[in-house]
Design a protein around this nucleic acid. Structure first.
Lengths: 214, 214
DNA sequence: TTTCCTTGGGAAGTGCCACTATCCAAACAT
DNA sequence: ATGTTTGGATAGTGGCACTTCCCAAGGAAA
């Protein structure tokens, strides 16, 4: 498969594919001669994954490179590889520990994890980007709605835990092997837009049930 | 309150506040004289809301202006105003109806809504940005994981519906009045980062429970 | 063989976006 | 009188995801 065909089958312009090659998101094709390169089905798969991450998952190009680097790192065990890939994802500004709201949010979230019995998450907290994201988001809300706290979050946490159980069950039904980490990353990244869209649809449904269309 | 004080109390630079004023995200202050303007607590609230939307919610400036335009539109009923604000949010590329995967995804999602009994969502579907987002995301996943469909999504939809019920319950416990639409928008926008962070934390917790830290 | 078209690679340019820096003149503080 | 602060306007910055342009090598057609 030449560049042109790769482009046609994926719907991505040749210029963009060349850009991805330069950025290291796609491995180079097999060099046939000085001016020709061959690509295969694996390149097509990878390209579709990259596109999905960028367009649907809104992951910046630099992050995609980082995530794929972990996915391809054979020196790591599967779980760790997936964890590394997931931790490379978030794009959160560091919480400003000077800020009082941030410190409050910190305590509140830590207490919440404890109350929920999420011991592993508690242990990972100091390192976890997800934990930091949560602190930032909670601080931002409390800055505007002062009487907002763990009581409001806890039921959501319960639901999200069930969601995570579904995620992992899903993953386990899938064939293991080379594709599995890739599938897991895909699931992790593309599940989120699906969940978000479902959430908004559900809000529309529930709002209409309660208040009609007016 | 002068610009400088507004800046200090919000932690936003004067240059940025001036930018927001120019962009119409903040109403102009009360003009004291040719070279002085007064701002009040309402400006501070609004500024914090804008910041939260932009920084935590990642809403682009143009969208923030649009959303706030709906929030401030007194000619509309509350439910409609909220709906308009919510619908102004998403940033989804139009699904390409030429694409076969997109058409498949379309059918699949429509069938899913029907099966779930989300009649209102079904009726709103042709117009709803959330519906379009869902179609785009499902199409992107199916392009890579071919045996993926409604059976996988349905349980998530169920959980997201419960989340939406929580959202609206929460909103109803809140005082009505001028603040309520603002609170609803805030909830809608800032809940999503919270949910996302909780989801990722829950994944970490559940992964560690099943597989340990290796 | 000559002509023409296609190909892959690299450098530079584009458009958008969220700020940020610089000016300016009025107003206030000392 | 002097220096600082203020709000408003204009232009500039840096990052990002491409896109355009150019070139020389290959291959196909005449």
């Amino acid at each position: 498969m030449r560049l042109a065909e790769l482009s046609e089958r994926s719907g991505v312009s040749t210029a963009t594919i060349k850009y991805y090659l330069r950025e290291g998101l796609l491995p180079p094709g097999r060099q046939v001669n000085a001016r020709t390169a061959e690509y295969d089905e694996e390149h097509l798969r990878r390209l579709r994954l990259v596109r999905a991450m960028i367009q649907v998952g809104r992951v910046p190009v630099a992050k995609v490179r980082e995530v794929l680097g972990h996915v391809d790192d054979d020196s790591l065990g599967r779980t760790i590889r997936l964890g590394a890939a997931m931790w490379a994802l978030p794009q959160v500004p560091e919480p400003d520990e000077e800020d009082e709201d941030v410190r409050d949010a910190h305590e509140e979230v830590a207490a919440l994890l404890h109350r929920l019995g999420w011991e592993n998450a508690e242990r990972l907290a100091p390192l976890s980007p997800a934990y930091r994201s949560l602190v930032v988001a909670v601080a931002a809300i409390r800055r505007i709605v002062h009487d907002w706290g763990a009581e409001q979050i806890a039921p959501y946490a319960e639901l999200m835990h069930r969601t995570a159980v579904l995620d992992l069950d899903n993953m386990e039904t899938h064939p293991s092997g080379a594709e599995r980490v890739e599938f897991a990353v895909l699931g992790a990244i593309l599940n989120e837009p699906v969940l978000q869209a479902l959430h908004r649809l559900a809000q529309e449904e529930e709002t209409a049930r309660r208040y009609g269309f007016e």
